[in-house]
Amino acid sequence: MAVFRPRGVSEAVVAVPAAGLVVLLGIVPADAAGRTLRELAPTVGFLAGVLVFGHLCDEAGVFAYLGASAARAARTRPRRLLVLVVVLAAAVTAVLTLDATVVLLTPVVLAVTRRSAVAVRPYAYACVRLANSGSLLLPVSNLTNLLAFSTTDLSFGRFAALMLLPWLLACSGEWLGVRTYFRRDLPNAGEAPELAQPAAPRYALAVLVVTVCGFVLLSSLDVPVAWAAGAGCLLLLAPRFARRDISPRRLLDEASLGFCAFVLALAVVVDAVARHGLGSALAQLVPSGSSLAALLGIAFLAALLANVVNNLPATLVLLPLVAANPAAVLAMLVGVNVGPNATFGGSLATLLWRRMLPAEERPRVREFHAFGLLSVPLIVAVATAGLWLGVRLVGV
């Protein structure tokens, strides 16, 4: 259901009954299922809030402004534009989650590249690759990060400090990979028309900055960051109340309540699988300790599992096995965030990206997987080495 979405039906249509079935059959005790749902509820609540916040930023013109600014700064040079798209995608992913990059930024980038008369492929790939790899930096960047962060004693700031070097290395690796693989589509210079620069949405940009600061502050106070996302939404909605320019139904749609229900139900189903064989089998494969070899082993195991069963189930299965060691948790995140760039099925964000591209611009299956298999193992290794160095310098 997540891959094909027939007639746009939510994945929850399958996941929720499946979760109910495993509880009714006693595969997962009802109290254990209830505990799982309670533990995940704040995380899923934040996910809904930040999806609405990203949508409101888009309606305020934030993404159109940033995309046009990147195009003007590139000055008709395709390679310079690629650098700016990578930086922009990495920043949007880190602050507003990978869904914002896939759903909101990608269409803007495609429109900008068409108007700039440059090849679309490198920039479309940059968006999806940075949506996954660029989500390493902050606890709020990816649902996998949120799930992992809730099991550790790391503060928001320490998480970011430990992941800063892996994030920089992964983003640099993605830029180098796209530039090298698509070098024929990236001439040194081009003849692009001058693009009009939309007015800066100053209020929305200010709210964005304040909201991100709120994430850091509330996390340091051990307050759920969902409150910051909610406050950001209210601040962006405030000017629209007077104009009566608000559609509650549209906001509910943007909150992706079906996907949120899917995440909660999937956690119960994955618990069932882990309780009855998969957990013990993987426990034999997960290295112990925080040595470079151990962290590499965890990252590559997580990357492999993500590409086999998707990164969200992989996170839910592996997290209990590594939760006692924060360094191992972060290595797992390198695997489940960077690793899914190897295949279409590795991440729900990649599936969504492929589905939303115009038919003439969808990547060929062979091309996508060849690029992924050539570049992802090296980027996973380099980012994990950066994490190991960060753990030694910063400590956990």
Rank of each mutant, 00 (worst) to 15 (best):
V209Q: 02
I379W: 11
C213D: 09
P17I: 09
A299C: 06
P239M: 08
I298M: 11
L82H: 07
P340Y: 13
V308A: 11
G289Q: 03
N341D: 02
R80N: 12
F215S: 00
D245Y: 07
A91E: 00
D185I: 11
D245F: 04
A370T: 14
A64E: 08
F259Q: 09
G20E: 01
S220G: 13
E191D: 11
L285Y: 07
P340C: 08
L130G: 03
V95K: 09
A306N: 02
S150G: 13
A19T: 06
R158I: 05
F53G: 05
A94G: 09
T211S: 04
P239R: 13
A265N: 07
V44G: 01
F259K: 05
A2V: 12
V269A: 10
L305G: 09
V334F: 00
P377Q: 12
L51G: 00
L333A: 06
L40M: 08
G345I: 14
A281P: 00
L295C: 05
S141C: 04
L348Q: 15
L257T: 01
V269F: 00
R366Y: 12
A385H: 03
V225D: 02
G297V: 07
L236R: 15
R121T: 14
T113N: 00
L295Q: 08
G34W: 04
F156N: 03
A2W: 13
A299E: 03
G157M: 01
Q284T: 14
R7H: 01
A111I: 07
P139Y: 04
R7A: 12
R129G: 08
E39P: 00
R114C: 12
L218E: 11
L351G: 12
